[in-house]
Design a protein around this nucleic acid. Structure first.
Lengths: 215, 215
DNA sequence: TAGATACTGGACGCGACGGTATAGGATCAA
DNA sequence: TTGATCCTATACCGTCGCGTCCAGTATCTA
């Protein structure tokens, strides 16, 4: 996404801080309420900006929403593409990916939104796909590759790396995202994220360790 | 919930088939769209009933929604309270519970709704709690008890039965519910439910088998 | 048969919200 | 300074959906 460097137009330029403020306000509101319940007036008020300004930066409510989703997706990519640790032992690599993944998916703002997204995105397949591929999908693909490599080296006894990656992610998450979405649990602390990543990884390794004799 | 047997009132009695039709129509619509997008007119049309009739049976849109949630929750309880199989081997018992659970949670109508519920129920804790306790919560409690029993008998090496139950449910579900909610996958066939229940259970048993030496 | 209630269909009041219009002040480049 | 554009504030329009009212008809009990 190369940011075209403003072809110098006459008149007063747009205030990029307002743009950011609107984006931040919308992100916060969409995280709390589903699409229909977020009013453009509320976004404007939250950003301490006139409603007209909102419409001057984002033509549409849907355009604004898509900008949010895209932004979160990009943020996910940024965080998740860093965690690899080429030559650390397998467990450490998995735990690191798990920590990053949980850090994103359980973040105070993201988690609630992630669970109100489906309802809104069900009739917007392209955007839904993009979001999924930037977050959960990306992690699953990376994990499947790591697992396949470990299997070839004989470090894991795995039938299908994709299934195994799914298992690992599921063990990391547990019921936490659902509970948060239901409003039955508070957002997690970093300490719990670390514990979940380690616990899930250990259980995974125990289930798939080579001497378990599973084809 | 004992159904009070109609204190005989004068005049034409309410048509219970209409009541059921409204409930069914609403269940179908709420499964597809979030709360705000379902119009009472649509419910009436779907039930081939006048809008006024809808309001005569359910005072409110929220009342109707709560009736749906309650109905689904009761249905869950009905299905899930049957699966126990007192003296079958552990694996068979777990697989049976898993099949029932997945059958409910991945059912064509329930799964989509389950993922639009949180957004609607976040400001209705009691109802959210009731739903959770009737479905996922109930299963987790039952599983924790079964797992604790197996651990006492030495059939499993488990630190915390509640965590372990969480792991098992997570392995059963995988990413399927999320994918369906995002509209990126179709509702599942019974065959896949069986496979998931067995696969998840086997992986769980492998991770927690006693000779793995985990405290 | 009479009285009471249920169902239908259409019309409608009302509030909420997305989006537009307008007018006036602010801020930039030339 | 000028002209173009941005931002604000407010008023406004159109629509949509909830919930109600009403007049007419159907159905039940006594």
């Amino acid at each position: 996404m190369p940011h075209i460097p403003d072809p110098p137009r006459p008149g007063r330029p747009k205030d990029s801080t307002k743009h950011a403020a609107i984006l931040a306000a919308a992100k916060q509101l969409f995280a709390r309420q589903p699409f229909e319940q977020v009013t453009m007036e509320a976004v404007a008020a939250q950003a301490t900006v006139s409603k007209m300004t909102v419409y001057s930066h984002f033509h549409d409510k849907e355009t604004l929403f898509e900008a949010i989703v895209t932004s979160v997706a990009d943020q996910m990519i940024g965080i998740l593409s860093g965690s690899d640790l080429r030559d650390a032992p397998l467990r450490e690599r998995l735990v690191a990916v798990g920590r990053d993944f949980l850090g994103v998916i359980l973040a105070p703002g993201v988690c609630e939104m992630a669970h109100s997204l489906p309802a809104t995105l069900r009739d917007n397949r392209p955007l839904a796909l993009r979001f999924y591929n930037a977050g959960p999908g990306r992690v699953r693909r990376a994990l499947a590759a790591m697992i396949a490599g470990a299997a070839e080296r004989g470090d894991l006894a795995v039938d299908d790396p994709a299934f195994a990656a799914d298992d690992l992610v599921s063990l990391w998450e547990g019921s936490r995202p659902a509970m948060i979405a239901f409003g039955l649990a508070e957002p997690v602390l970093p300490e719990e994220i670390r514990q979940r990543a380690e616990r899930g990884t250990d259980i995974f390794l125990r289930a798939y360790r080579p001497d378990a004799g599973e084809g």
